[in-house]
Design a protein around this nucleic acid. Structure first.
Length: 203
DNA sequence: GAGTGATCATAT
DNA sequence: ATATGATCACTC
């Protein structure tokens, strides 16, 4: 990481505690991602989303993956086919970083990348997870959704703090304050994907 | 140890 | 305020 960061003139932070997105930004910069902070795949022209993912020494992904915010405009009048979730996950370049605890950030290394199309069997499950979550939101039951809802795709709070509120749909259909939430891919999804492509243990 | 909910930084 | 990039940290 020290080598790659040095090439683009960046200092390597001591750790990621206050620089959680640092690795992702380094990868974007080095590879020339162009979507910036738009709600679109990183490489907009070719529709490829770039995701760095921490793995252990055995190649097993260690964290879930942010997909996109679940805002009202993001859900209104959308089907799975036209959803931002599907748009981002259709083609993903997974770039693993070996992040076994104890390895200093400067010494961490990228591992072999995987550029994958959305697998049809996975898509069927993602679509049903997405539909279930969106249905609950539209019914005003967003507070009933927890991180346990959904097999591969989940909905979790996403904000600078637990006190942030946005307009959500209440049980009576009127706007009520709720925490901002986002779609995430469960670690399990990436673990299975890597296991299939790299012949790794899936657990 | 796994997994959910909380949090941190930056751009527009 | 809404996006992006994620990992942290506490509970189970």
């Amino acid at each position: 990481m020290a080598d790659v960061a040095g090439r683009i003139g960046l200092e390597v932070p001591e750790d990621l505690r206050r620089h959680k997105g640092w690795l992702g930004h380094v990868a974007e910069w080095v590879l020339g991602a162009d979507a910036g902070s738009k709600p679109a795949p990183d490489f907009e022209g070719i529709g490829v989303e770039l995701k760095t993912v921490p793995i252990d020494a055995a190649g097993k992904p260690l964290e879930s993956t942010y997909v996109c915010l679940a805002t009202s405009t993001n859900l209104h009048d959308r089907t799975w086919e036209t959803s931002l979730v599907r748009k981002k996950l259709a083609h993903v370049m997974w770039l693993p970083v070996v992040a076994q605890p104890g390895i200093p950030l400067a010494e961490r290394r990228f591992a072999r990348a995987l550029i994958a199309e959305l697998d049809p069997a996975d898509e069927a499950i993602l679509q049903s997870d997405w539909a279930e979550i969106v249905e609950l939101i539209k019914l005003g039951m967003v507070e009933a959704i927890t991180g346990s809802t959904g097999e591969l795709l989940q909905l979790r709070p996403k904000a600078a703090s637990g006190r942030v509120r946005v307009d959500g749909i209440g049980e009576d259909g009127f706007a009520v304050p709720t925490r901002p939430r986002a779609f995430y891919l469960r670690t399990h999804y990436t673990r299975q994907l890597f296991a299939r492509h790299f012949a790794l243990p899936s657990r």
